[in-house]
Amino acid sequence: MDPQPCCGGGPARLGASFGARTPVELIAAFTDALTDPAPAASTPSDPYEPLRQSAWQPPGHRG
């Protein structure tokens, strides 16, 4: 994907094309990234936090 300048010197336009055999999950991930970008890298992220908030324990955990 290469940004192309828009007519009149406006913001760059992006283009992407997908073939007929492109998995729908890949297209969905692409469009999701455009409409809802990831938080800044400086934002701490813990993928297990929602599980901990629900008092989830891993299988076999003795606690």
Results as ranks from 00 to 15, higher is better:
Asp2Met: 00
Gln4Val: 12
Cys6Met: 07
Cys6Arg: 12
Gly9Arg: 00
Gly10Met: 06
Pro11Asp: 11
Ala12Gln: 11
Ala12Met: 08
Ala12Ile: 02
Arg13Leu: 13
Arg13Glu: 12
Leu14Gln: 10
Leu14Arg: 12
Gly15Thr: 02
Gly15Val: 02
Ser17Tyr: 03
Phe18Ser: 04
Gly19Glu: 11
Ala20Thr: 10
Arg21Val: 09
Pro23Gln: 04
Glu25Gln: 07
Glu25Thr: 06
Glu25Gly: 04
Leu26Ser: 07
Leu26Thr: 12
Ile27Tyr: 02
Phe30Ile: 01
Phe30Leu: 04
Phe30Thr: 04
Thr31Met: 03
Ala33Val: 01
Ala33Ile: 05
Thr35Arg: 14
Pro37Lys: 03
Ala38Cys: 05
Pro39Trp: 04
Ala41Trp: 07
Ala41Arg: 14
Ser42Phe: 02
Thr43Gly: 01
Thr43Pro: 00
Pro44Met: 08
Pro44Ala: 09
Pro44Ile: 08
Asp46Glu: 09
Pro47Met: 04
Pro47Ser: 01
Glu49Thr: 11
Pro50Met: 05
Arg52Lys: 15
Arg52Cys: 09
Arg52Val: 09
Gln53Ser: 13
Ser54Gln: 15
Ser54Trp: 11
Ser54Gly: 10
Pro58His: 04
Pro59Cys: 07
Gly60Trp: 06
His61Gly: 00
Arg62Gln: 13
Arg62Phe: 04
Gly63Pro: 11
